[in-house]
């Protein structure tokens, strides 16, 4: 039995991410190599809120079409866009308009021509079947109250042979119920 309804969960998550402020590069420096961060806007680097480096593990290459689900302020989308190059494309998807606005500002600062951002839900991806070469997601799946539905959507939009790299938190041992019921834990 979920502790939060879909509506409540989305509202809590959106409020939390809208309120997130860039403080320092500590998260980004722990996840990305210096050459991956070089040339990216400081705001995108400081608002890295993921838990891994899925673009690196996906092996994104030139000419590929990449979808970053839960793109936040855009750091993984921008890294993917650079790796995909002028013949490729990186799409960032997020459900929080305030984060998309930040991501679009950061993309404009890079001047990368092959980046697009989209508002939408991971459980109903606004992309055609088999239209994506690589799906990445960084610290996002845990925010869904319908994880199997979100995974099925990732599978649907990937072309046959397409790749997925998914970074997220998992629990080795369960947490006390008072933490699981806490909205801050849900949002993060």
């Amino acid at each position: 039995m979920p502790y939060f309804s879909d509506t409540d969960a989305r509202s809590i998550i959106q409020r939390t991410y809208e309120a997130a402020r860039a403080e320092d590069r500590a998260v980004a420096d722990s996840l990305y190599a210096p050459d991956e961060l070089a040339g990216l806007p400081e705001g995108a680097v400081a608002l890295a809120l993921g838990v891994g480096n899925p673009v690196r593990h996906a092996g994104v290459g030139p000419g590929e079409i990449v979808l970053d689900i839960g793109c936040g302020a855009g750091i993984d989308t921008l890294i993917a866009a650079r790796r995909a190059g002028r013949d490729g494309r990186a799409h960032g998807l997020d459900m929080t308009p305030a984060m998309l606005e930040r991501a679009r500002q950061h993309a404009a600062l890079t001047g990368f021509p092959n980046v697009q951002f989209h508002e939408g839900l991971m459980e109903a991806l606004p992309f055609a079947d088999a239209s994506i070469d690589v799906v990445v997601s960084n610290g996002t799946l845990n925010l869904s109250t319908r994880k199997s539905r979100a995974l099925a959507e990732m599978q649907r939009v990937l072309r046959p042979g397409g790749r997925l790299a998914l970074a997220d938190f998992v629990l080795g041992e369960t947490l006390p119920e008072e933490i699981l019921r806490d909205p801050t834990a849900l949002a993060a």
């Binding site: 046959p160 042979g161 790749r163 970074a167």
Partner: peptide
């Protein structure tokens, strides 16, 4: 969280995992 979880778990409350997979075809 510090108060709710035993001290021996403070260094490993969750695991950050990266999984890779492929769509058949």
């Amino acid at each position: 969280v510090r108060q709710a979880i035993p001290a021996e778990r403070h260094d490993a409350i969750v695991d950050a995992l990266v999984l890779t997979a492929r769509k058949p075809g």
